[in-house]
Design a protein around this nucleic acid. Structure first.
Length: 419
DNA sequence: TCTGGGGTCCTAGGACCC
DNA sequence: TCTGGGGTCCTAGGACCC
């Protein structure tokens, strides 16, 4: 058996921990720049606010129903995520962290009452962190996802955990819309519906041959998982990333070449830092910059340059220089750039990098320099040491409704006033 | 005025090889 | 009218996820 522990409306729940007055009120959390709704309380969902709705398009709902809005406060959410994970680790020999608010638990080989264990786990998370967590238990990961979802919809009925019993699975799948299934996305769902396949159960009755031909190996895996045959591996080891992307939309368009270079240099520096954090290097870097894609009356530009490195690198100096140079190939004056970013690819572990005959001395110097910079910048919200060519200002962004970093910043601890 | 920021895996087709 | 029969590797783009 596998379990999936999934935090309910995670970002909203984090905000409510320190704002219990928001219980029962519609609450949303916005993306960067206060752009879109990316987390919604049940009350906000009931008002018809959808995932990814731009704030300006739902303004009328927000005003009319007094919806509480928050800018995203990632330091807060990351800290809660860490706390939840440490609780989950106590409950199962292996966990697979799937996202900031979800983790699978490997229950294979464990002998206990899974239902009782999962209920206790949900209660424990709630009590120790204040975050409501739904736990689904089932013989495959896809079925565990469905179980957790059920439990989220009927919290009172299931009390934090739903476990699939073999005799119930068919009934549950018969009532589950095909587009709710993990692995069936916005392309395949309409196609299946047009064929009359509207439920998960109907999907499991398709032939293996049809799946293979029309939805490839991934569709087949989902099909198997729904039929109770594990087809998606449990990944207990967190592996290093194969690509690292840092990109941002700007709160207002950038017209100057130098300003664009500075922004991209910041993204490059962040990327280099992440590479070093996972002990790897990259052999190529993609740099892109684009105008506002929503402005359809204006001429658009999307520039995209790939820079190969002679040897794999994680040096901020190399990566920043490459990114700034790439802007010279992309930039055209007169365009307002709204978004830019860099992507590190061809990532290799640092141990596997062969030593260069020619640049060895420079490599050593950079490595020691980066170690020194990282040790100074570590545990700090913003970097204290930066490359001069990335400028001294932060990437500009709106964040008008950010709550305090209650748990990670000494200056923002909550105050309790006793009268 | 205002529209997020990350990732993964798979597949088809092209380039190249014998 | 006629045009072999295999392979491998790489890349771009698609589909999916949070």
């Amino acid at each position: 058996m596998f379990a999936l522990a999934d935090c309910n409306n995670f970002f909203v729940s984090c905000e409510r921990v320190f704002r219990p007055d928001l219980e029962g009120r519609p609450v949303i959390v916005l993306s960067r720049n206060d752009g879109c709704a990316i987390a919604r309380s049940n009350e906000a969902k009931a008002l018809g606010i959808k995932m990814g709705d731009p704030l300006f398009k739902i303004r009328h709902i927000v005003d009319r129903y007094n919806v509480a809005i928050f800018s995203s406060n990632m330091s807060l959410y990351a800290d809660f995520s860490r706390r939840i994970r440490s609780i989950l680790r106590e409950s199962a020999p292996q966990i697979e962290v799937y996202s900031i608010d979800e983790a699978f638990l490997d229950l294979r080989g464990m002998e206990c009452d899974f239902d009782a264990m999962a209920k206790a786990l949900s209660r424990r998370c709630q009590r120790l962190t204040g975050i409501p967590v739904s736990v689904g238990v089932a013989p495959t990961k896809t079925l565990a996802k469905i179980a957790a979802e059920l439990c989220k919809h009927y919290p009172k009925l299931y009390g934090g955990c739903y476990m699939h019993r073999p005799e119930d699975i068919e009934k549950v799948l018969g009532r589950l819309a095909i587009d709710e299934v993990w692995g069936i996305g916005r392309k395949h769902a309409p196609r299946l519906k047009a064929m009359g396949i509207t439920t998960a159960k109907a999907f499991t009755e398709l032939s293996e041959e049809w799946l293979r031909r029309n939805m490839g190996i991934t569709g087949l895996r989902t099909w198997r998982e729904l039929r109770g045959i594990p087809a998606i591996d449990f990944e207990h080891l967190a592996h290093s990333k194969q690509s690292i992307c840092n990109s941002r939309s700007f709160s207002s368009e950038i017209y100057s070449r130098e300003e664009l270079k500075e922004q991209v240099a910041k993204f490059a520096a962040m990327t280099a830092e992440k590479l070093r954090e996972q002990h790897s290097r990259c052999s190529s870097l993609t740099v892109f910059a684009a105008t506002n894609r929503f402005q359809d009356d204006a001429v658009q530009q999307f520039g995209n340059v790939v820079i190969p490195f002679p040897e794999p690198t994680s040096s901020t100096l190399h990566i920043v220089r490459a990114a700034r140079n790439a802007i010279d190939d992309i930039y055209a004056s007169g365009f307002g750039y709204k978004k830019a970013g860099v992507i590190a690819t061809d990532i290799v572990p640092v141990e596997g990098v062969s030593v260069s005959m020619f640049n060895n001395a420079e490599d050593q110097r950079h490595r020691r320099l980066m170690q020194a910079i990282d040790s100074i910048n570590r545990n700090d919200d913003r970097s204290r040491i930066v490359v001069a060519s990335q400028g001294l200002n932060d990437v500009k962004a709106y964040s008008r409704h950010r709550s305090p970093r209650y748990t990670t910043s000494w200056d923002e601890l909550p105050e309790v006033i006793v009268k």
